[in-house]
Design a protein around this nucleic acid. Sequence first.
DNA 1: GAGTTTGAAACT
DNA 2: CAGTTTCAAACTC
Length: 765
Amino acid sequence: MDTPDRPRAGAAAGFEDSPVFNFINNLSPIPPPKPQDTSHNVHLFKSSDLAPVSSIFASPHVNPPKESKLLIRDDSVQLSQDSNSPNSVRTRLGSAIRLIKCKNIVSENCSFTCHLNQGPIDSSANRSNSTSKLPQTIQFVGDSSECGKNQNADGKKDLARDQESIELEGALLDHTGPDKIDSSQPGRIVHENQQCEQQKDGFTAYDGDYLITHESSMDMLRLAPPCETDTQLVNETLNADNVFSGNSLLTDGPSGSYISNAAHDPNLYWDGTVEGPTTDYTPQLLPGACQSQSVSNDQICNAVEEPSDHIPIDQSALSQNMRGMRRRCLFNEKAGAVNKAAKKTSDRHSANTTTPRCKTNSGDKPVRTPPCALPGIGLHLNALAPISTDKIVPQAAQSSINQASNFPCAVSSSTSEPNIVNEDSSQAIVVANADESGQGSPKKKRHKFDDGDGTSCKRCSCKKSKCLKLYCECFHAGVFCSEPCSCQGCLNKPSNMEIVLSTREQIESRNPLAFAPKVIRTSEPGQESGEYSNKTPASARHKRGCNCKKSSCLKKYCECYQGGVGCSISCRCEGCKNAFGRREGLGPLSIEEAKQGNEENSACVKEEKKEDDNNQLVICPAANPAPAENVLTTPSAMDIRPLASLPPSSSKRPRSTTKVLGHPSRLCNSQAPLKTDTVLSPFENYAEIMFGVGTSDSLKGGLSPQTSVKVVSPNKKRVSPPRIGTGLSPICKSGRKLILKSIPSFPSLGGDVNNADTKTTLPAP
DNA sequence: GAGTTTGAAACT
DNA sequence: CAGTTTCAAACTC
């Protein structure tokens, strides 16, 4: 390909002249020696495997439970200079970090030419000549008209379109170790501008990377077999820094692992796997040589699981990769099913690649993939299962937010801060994948996937609301719907970000508290277990109180009960028997009463048994509706409630280790006017998805319970928590939200002066 | 799994 | 703001 201007690694230059090199150049790619390894790989653009573009577009990336972790491989992502570009948007969906050049994503003519090198080059070189295949060329020609939409003169992009573009790009760019083409070779995508040199370490040896460059001068991406046309490409694959012996270059690495280095030029590396429509790609910026290294999950898996398959790994090269390796390994470990899951998912994906997974009918459930969490949106996501707060890629999120919010993309690439891929989110996704096999009823899924994390998919089953109303838990929670959802005609997808955001704004305008968490509770397990002496957690609070009539606040119909908090003055319930605390001077429930109430839920009984004697102290937090002051000043009172007393099967919100969204009590409202402490931004979770759930360094330390205490001081001295833009309280989510200030929301709530402290660089709306 | 109940959300 | 309708989750069978 046409990359005359690309700098070449010095080593590569010298190597170029070597006879071996020439020989290699003359060699045709050979198919991967070990097809069985392909199970870990995703199909690469086989034309048959390629889903319709629409399908690709249709697949959101948030909360993608089905997305194999192979897709989540951007262990290290760094902002490049490109990220500074207004056009550059990094989104983090699910665990994947995506650097997106919005503008350049799709070329004007929207055509992609992909040259796929199917065969790895055998390091032994001698054997390479046997079964060579010609590189496949795949061209995608999109609707130019639509493509044009992406590039509005005013710079405003159709968000959805961008999303599509992103996804499309991701799909195209994601290189894969296609099972069919090259099982072991995760392709490598290189942004056209990249002058970076990509190389594979000896460990991966395989040089069958797929280089994708923009075909057009601007935006086109091309997959080209490095060995094919031009020796330059091969040379590029050689990294001066790396010990890249000619042999290694030729070495066929079954694992197909590769590491791309941007030794010379901070350029974008589009590093991802292509897996049909759901493929998640991970563009990576490699600002520094050898600093950014990415190892695909499957590669790692292979390395870990199937060492025997690998050619002896060059230690030095391996060492370079160790970080990524370890991380991924750790990831795998956490995943529990780890490698197995990975394999399964990989296999599944492989199988899936041949089948269009997206349904176009509104009635049909579109295939969703993170941030969810995720994740995918994943993100989330969907994904996004338990996302650790400490590992996030805020920049990406910011970019996403900006884009979504029509904010000027002002992502600062200056962020030297290494973007840490949210391993946990990845993990979550993996777990989700593992669970994927057990797709049962929505309820089962709900419980199964429910991590209690507000960022995880709520597994809604909306039919008429299109998941754009508060009826939809996902929407309400601020997460994109994802695979586990059984909703119909869902519009709560990253691809519809504009709609989603606008709808949210609309709802918010009607009711600023609409998206406020129903219950806010500390996420500290210890706190919930009555460990309140030192750690006074943020109290569970009522947002607005329930209005129960028949349930007597003893069932999950009752928000309060569901949130594991007692009813408060703000409630309008009748015959309140809330085990967690009755409304209005009803006085604390006796243990018996509480138990009785809990026992109405069978699940609750078990937990009741777990309660220790301390329960008596704990049970009635809200029972005595303390004066507002008390509530504010003695937040711990409500927190005292034993974990056991939580609504048992309240699989969704109340979880010991997870934050519970709750109602800011009226008291809170009155006194602390819901200023952020009690209200989460409606966009918060979306932001989390995109941001990767709050992850500022400050947060990495994790907000200790003490932090929460600071926010709501028992001394009545209110320490304004860093208010995150939209009423985001550190209390709410263990400090995961600090980065969300940029998110426009809750204007009414925004009285907090702390807003000025926005950590994000995004301009407020 | 289908139908019912429930209460929040949305609507008027 | 109150009353009604709509909606989806929770619940029951």
